[in-house]
Computed example of a mutant assay.
Amino acid sequence: MVIKKEVMITPFQLPRMLHIYLPKHYEESGERYPVMYMYDGHNLFHDEDATYGKSWKMEEYLDYMETKLIVVGIECNHEGNERLNEFCPFDVDHHHFGKIIGKGEGFMDWVVEELKPMIDTLYRTQPDREHTAIGGSSMGGLMALYSAAKYNHYFSKAASLSPAVSFCYKQTKEMISQYQIDPKTYVYIDWGSDESRNKQQLTYATSRNLEIAHLFDKQGASVYPRIIINGKHNEETWEQQVPIFIDYLFGK
C-alpha cells in the first residue's frame, strides 16, 4: 500500500508530500525492512499523481514480487524552476534553463538529519547503511549520484536513471573524487539510446556516464552501467527498468 504523508522541509520552510510504499503483508509481518528513498515520489506509484499522467507503477511490481522493501518517494517542488534548484547540488548557468541555484546539499541534509530519523521512528525499518538506498531519474538521477558519494555513510546503494550529469559534469566528477566511497557500495546507472538527438550526442552521453561509473569503480564500489536500447527520457522507459535496478540493489 502507498501512504501519503505531508511533512515540512525545514531548511526551505516548505510543506512537501511523501509517497510511502509499505510492503505487502507489512501490517501482519512484524518484520523490519530496508528503505529506498527516491526523488519525484509522485511519479513512482500511481498514474493519477504523476506529472505527465504516467507512473513507474512500482507498487504493482513490488506487490507482485512481494519485495521486502519500504520506498519513501519525496515529491518535488512543482513551482517554476524550483525542482531544478532543489535537485541540483551546484550553482549552474544553463544555456536553456538559465541560472540554477543549487539547493541539493540543503535538501539532502534535511533527508539524512530529519526525514530518515522520522521514517525510522514511524516504520519498522532496517536503519543501518547496508539497508538504505537512494534513487531517482534525470535530475533525481544526478542527485542519487551526489548522495551516493557525499552521503555515502548513509547510503550503500543508489539507482541513477538517465542522470542529468550534463548540467554539471565537471563538478560531479570532482565531487565524486573528493569523497571516500565505501567498497560496499552498489551503484546502478543507465541511459537511453534515444535520449540523444544523434550519434554524436549519444557518444558524449555514454562517455560521461561511463566516466562517472569509473570513478565509483576506482574506489572499489560495485557499479552496473547500462545503455537502454531505444530507451527514452520518460517514465515509460524508467518503469521498465524497475525490475532490473531493484534486483541489482536488493536481490543479493
Rank of each mutant, 00 (worst) to 15 (best):
Q178R: 13
L62H: 12
I100D: 05
M17Q: 15
M1G: 14
E174W: 03
D93Q: 14
R83P: 00
E239D: 15
Y26E: 07
P15H: 03
I9A: 06
K150S: 13
Y188W: 12
D194I: 07
T51A: 13
K54H: 10
L18W: 05
L145Y: 03
T125S: 07
M139L: 14
C168A: 13
Q13N: 14
N234D: 14
Y224K: 07
G102L: 11
P225T: 11
N198C: 11
D247I: 00
R226W: 10
E114A: 08
L122P: 00
T237R: 07
L44S: 02
N198T: 06
H214G: 04
N152V: 13
Q126D: 12
Y33H: 05
T132G: 06
G53A: 12
S162L: 12
L84M: 12
H131T: 03
Y64P: 02
Y154S: 05
G136L: 01
H19L: 09
L215S: 13
E113Q: 14
G141D: 01
K150N: 09
F216W: 06
S177Q: 12
G53Q: 02
V165F: 08
D93T: 14
I228E: 10
S177I: 01
G140D: 00
K4M: 14
M65W: 11
I3Y: 11
Q241K: 12
H233P: 11
D109K: 12
S147P: 09
K157P: 03
K218C: 10
G104P: 07
H19I: 04
T121D: 12
I244C: 03
I101H: 15
D93F: 14
M175P: 00
F97Q: 14
M8D: 08
H78K: 15
I74Y: 00
K116Y: 08
D217N: 15
H19C: 06
L18D: 05
K24V: 07
E114Q: 14
R197S: 13
T172G: 04
I100L: 07
R197K: 13
Q126P: 03
F167W: 11
T125M: 00
M118W: 11
V223K: 03
G104V: 02
Q219H: 13
M143D: 02
E60W: 01
H95E: 10
M38N: 08
E66M: 08
D194L: 13
A50V: 03
T172N: 04
G141E: 00
S137I: 00
Y248C: 08
E174S: 10
L249P: 00
L210H: 09
G135H: 02
M58E: 00
K4V: 08
S177V: 01
A144K: 07
T10G: 02
L62K: 04
S138G: 05
M1I: 07
Y37N: 09
P225W: 12
V7G: 08
G53R: 10
T237D: 11
V165P: 08
K170L: 08
S29V: 04
I189W: 02
E86Y: 06
S156R: 06
T206W: 04
Y204D: 13
D40E: 06
Q13G: 10
S196H: 05
G98V: 06
F167A: 04
G41L: 05
Y37D: 01
D47M: 06
K252G: 15
K199M: 15
E114L: 05
G104T: 10
E130H: 15
L215T: 09
T206Q: 14
E75G: 15
P183R: 09
K184H: 12
R208I: 11
L115G: 05
